[in-house]
Write a protein that binds this DNA or RNA. Structure first.
Lengths: 351, 351
DNA sequence: TGTGTTCTCGTAAACGTTTACGGCAAAACG
DNA sequence: CGTTTTGCCGTAAACGTTTACGAGAACACA
């Protein structure tokens, strides 16, 4: 429909135009462009020159149709429900890395946006069934994730940022070691004399929330500290969530002397709430963030936390995805890689 | 290449399978699916049922090829150079609105990532020449914007978030009134007794930086205040930028009593710098941000600033884009809409 | 009954590629 | 010189759709 208006413009040149212009067949043009061996060196050069001059690039639809592959990978991005304005800064450097690595294999990255709330299922089906991409990358994996079940069921290539119990754990993935970070945070706080340590976390459906809490609990027990449910609170994984939920744990009859937040956004909202209660983070109470971003450096006080290396993770997940796809795997064949990366502690002023 | 492995799986059903299954021709199936009039009501229902049962959706490449349109709109997203980790939270709600509105017209939104630094030109050409999308949406418009020149030159449909001097101002666009916000900020500060007002802004290539500064200057002159170049500083449009540049203006021999930051990220970095100099924002110095996000509410002090309504802007820009494309414009034909929206002042504690 | 209209559907071409196949000429080989 | 190989290229089919066109049947009308 749309393109009706853009019929015979200079940029709409097809391989036929190119062939006619050069007085050779379209087959030869195609072979020259695709770097096949059975074409004369001179001819190839002439084709390349002409293509550059006429601004010719093969039509993606035609190429995809014939090849049976779109040469592009989809990342499913979705705003959280209840997340009115502020979103996923986390993903930008990750996507930068992902894109860069995919480009090395001649693949395009497309980000498909979902509507908040529908949890991507519908949109994912659409991408898969219409074959808009050759593989997808999922984030925000849940403990039980219907997206993963679906993709494994239909046999569509994918990789996940984050683990999950779904899909028989047989899909390629890259995750951060939230469990260790949770435990390390506790260790660090205990070493500084804290015994009453709170945890502010998102829904346990989100696998990283689950892992964080598991590490937190385990470390607490290791130190012989009883886990107090009153010190664990759940909120939306954004500023508002942290802001709303922090007062709850502070109002417990034996309040915490330290709080671990699952990410910087929650911590930001939480610190605001603390300040309003007259409690000064870094002074009256210790604060640690599990998933930190450079933003934390600019808080007052600057927040101590664990930093993921997002851009390398993006690059690596691209490799992991490609390694799982026969057509792209190296000579040793396709294999499923599942990695867990450490988080790096950035010590600052808040604990 | 990639899809080689996914040959005859349930989800790879084509219109031929469907037709064979129903014992009718593919032409009829297609017509039924596309809601054309010349197909019997019973037949249509049978086709629809079978399509649902077999999980059939038309292959996007085939459809695009035949239709000459991909039914999708591309948004060019690009991380800033020098912006190591933190990115574009600004865009998420905008994209949510854009996506929602496009979906109403059966269009998909795809976000294409660029590599930091190349300023999209190459990537944009690729999208256009390979006809991966039917139209594109640009953001971060510059005063002179080669992307806009290129797109108008080749006649490819597009719309911009932000104005520009390029392209003869004949393309559809939606922008915020940064000039008025800049002036309003000055008015507000002057009314509160300030005369030494600094402006921290990004490169003037970025049109919103240019507009902001124009408003700032104009208002200053209106109040009979001389514009002091020492109070105007340029930095990267992120935390690091604000952090690096704020000390410069504070070290001028007649330091400001108020600072206007171009966005919340710069303000965050700037406030940190101020705190380290022993200057308390909201107490020793007034701070206002031009492009605010909900994040600002959680600063200490909570920042006063001007808020864009991003999600509605996304929706509106979708309308504006579609209105410019004949195939989608209503009965009154295609028209170029250019709108400038106000920013809403959110008064808080920092000024 | 003959003619015209309407409804429904099948046929086939077309969109822009890629690629298997075959053919021709030149080169290599005996 | 005859045969085989090699290098290079053109032909045509195929990918999965949509749609112009035409045909047959049913129906209406005179």
């Amino acid at each position: 429909m749309i393109a009706k208006q853009g019929e015979n413009r200079p940029l709409a040149s097809s391989i036929h135009d190119l062939a006619r212009h050069l007085n050779i067949s379209i087959g030869t043009v195609s072979r020259a462009l695709n770097g096949r061996a059975d074409v004369n060196a001179d001819t190839r050069q002439r084709v390349l020159d002409a293509a550059a001059k006429l601004n010719y690039s093969p039509n993606q639809s035609g190429r995809s149709l014939r090849r049976g592959a779109t040469q592009s990978i989809a990342f499913m991005l979705q705003p959280h429900p209840g997340d009115q304005q502020y979103g996923e800064p986390f993903f930008i450097p990750f996507l930068t890395g992902l894109q860069a690595k995919l480009a090395e294999s001649g693949l395009d990255l497309i980000v498909v946006m979902g509507a908040p709330g529908d949890y991507q299922q519908e949109r994912l089906r659409r991408v898969v069934e219409t074959r808009r991409a050759d593989a997808v990358v999922l984030a925000y994996t849940r403990r039980e994730d219907e997206r993963i079940d679906y993709l494994t069921r239909v046999g569509f290539p994918f990789a996940t940022l984050g683990r999950s119990r779904s899909g028989g754990k047989t899909h390629p993935s890259l995750d951060l070691d939230f469990e260790k970070a949770g435990a390390d945070a506790v260790d660090r706080l205990v070493a500084r004399g804290h015994r009453r340590i709170a945890a502010i976390r998102p829904s346990l459906n989100l696998n990283f929330g689950y892992l964080f809490l598991a590490g937190y609990r385990k470390a607490l027990r290791r130190h012989g500290i009883e886990v107090d449910p009153g010190l664990i609170a759940k909120g939306f994984i954004n500023e508002a969530g942290g802001n709303a939920v922090t007062p709850q744990v502070m109002r417990s009859k034996d309040p915490p002397t330290a709080i671990i937040f699952n990410n910087d956004a929650m911590a930001l909202g939480g610190c605001k709430a603390l300040a309003e209660m007259g409690i000064k983070p870094g002074h009256d109470i210790a604060v640690i963030v599990i998933v930190e971003t450079p933003l934390c450096r600019y808080f007052s006080p600057a927040l101590t936390g664990f930093r993921p290396s997002l851009e390398p993770m993006g690059r690596r997940l691209a490799e992991i995805l490609l390694a799982s796809i026969p057509a792209f795997a190296g000579p040793d064949g396709a294999r499923i890689i599942r990695e867990v990366w450490p988080l790096e502690l950035i010590a600052r002023d808040s604990d």
